[in-house]
Simulated assay, not measured.
Amino acid sequence: MDDLKIRELVKRLDTASVVEQEAAWTLLRPLGAGVVPFLADAYGSTKKAQGRVALIFHAIRFARDSEAAFELGIRALKDKATLVRYRACGVCAYSLRPDAIPHLEELLEHPDAKTAEDAVAAIDAIKRKNHHYFIDRSHSGTSFWTVNPEDSAV
Results as ranks from 00 to 15, higher is better:
110 H>N: 15
61 R>G: 14
132 H>A: 07
151 D>H: 06
17 S>D: 14
94 Y>S: 09
141 G>M: 01
129 K>Y: 00
94 Y>V: 14
140 S>F: 00
146 T>K: 13
98 P>K: 15
26 T>M: 13
23 A>W: 09
46 T>D: 06
37 P>V: 05
58 H>A: 06
146 T>Y: 01
68 A>D: 09
55 L>G: 13
134 F>T: 12
52 R>L: 00
9 L>D: 07
88 A>N: 07
21 Q>P: 10
68 A>Y: 01
16 A>P: 09
133 Y>E: 07
6 I>Q: 06
41 D>V: 08
58 H>Y: 09
141 G>A: 04
58 H>W: 08
117 E>A: 07
28 L>G: 01
125 A>M: 05
68 A>M: 05
33 A>Y: 00
144 F>G: 11
64 R>L: 05
72 L>F: 04
93 A>C: 08
112 D>E: 08
66 S>H: 03
107 L>V: 12
123 I>Y: 03
122 A>M: 02
153 A>W: 12
144 F>C: 10
66 S>F: 00
44 G>H: 03
116 A>E: 13
38 F>W: 06
134 F>H: 08
56 I>T: 05
89 C>F: 08
143 S>D: 10
41 D>M: 05
72 L>W: 03
58 H>R: 15
40 A>M: 06
46 T>S: 11
55 L>N: 11
51 G>F: 00
92 C>A: 09
93 A>M: 08
95 S>W: 02
10 V>F: 10
150 E>W: 00
100 A>Q: 02
103 H>M: 03
91 V>H: 01
102 P>S: 04
